[in-house]
């Protein structure tokens, strides 16, 4: 059995972390194309209240299992060299990155499709919950639509 990779990171995903992830792939010389998706916390205004941050939590055991399945099925479906998924837990402020999907392959068409496939499946199937915290400290629970 392949080792399960750790997806969840406390707090925002920094631009340094993303840059390092890219740099690590320079030794994988069979790669000809990378594609990256970054999810950023948006400053939504909901009924006159402005979002300040999202506080993420998850059902860890189920999330790990679903992410493992998504990884396996993505590799079966697309000719990829590697893929990485990272998601924040805890509080992430507006403007910060909370979701990072990084897909690499020998050729370009596969990486676009695979990225879209992964992002959609993570949003729909992985038990991650988000509390939108407003500037006045009240909150509401976010729902993916």
């Amino acid at each position: 059995m392949k080792k399960k990779k750790s997806v969840f990171k406390e707090g925002q995903i920094t631009s340094d972390f993303i840059a390092n992830a890219i740099a690590k792939h320079q030794v994988k010389t069979q790669i000809g194309a990378h594609n990256i998706f970054l999810g950023q916390v948006r400053k939504d205004v909901i009924e006159d209240k402005t979002v300040k941050a999202i506080d993420f939590s998850c059902y860890q055991e189920m999330a790990d299992q679903k992410l493992h399945d998504i990884r396996e099925e993505t590799f079966e479906k697309f000719d990829l060299t590697c893929m990485h998924i990272y998601h924040s837990l805890g509080e992430v402020q507006v403007g910060e990155v909370c979701f990072f999907v990084f897909v690499s392959a020998p050729h370009r068409p596969q990486v676009y499709e695979a990225t879209e496939y992964i992002v959609n499946r993570v949003k729909e199937e992985v038990p991650i919950f988000g509390k939108e915290i407003f500037e006045d400290a009240s909150y509401q629970w976010k729902t993916n639509v």
């Binding site: 993420f56 055991e61 998601h87 979701f99 992002v119 949003k123 992985v126 991650i128 919950f129 976010k142």
Partner: peptide
């Protein structure tokens, strides 16, 4: 059984 009650997902 491990029984969990979950609200709407909000990842991504």
């Amino acid at each position: 059984d491990e029984i969990a009650i979950l609200s709407a997902f909000a990842g991504g």
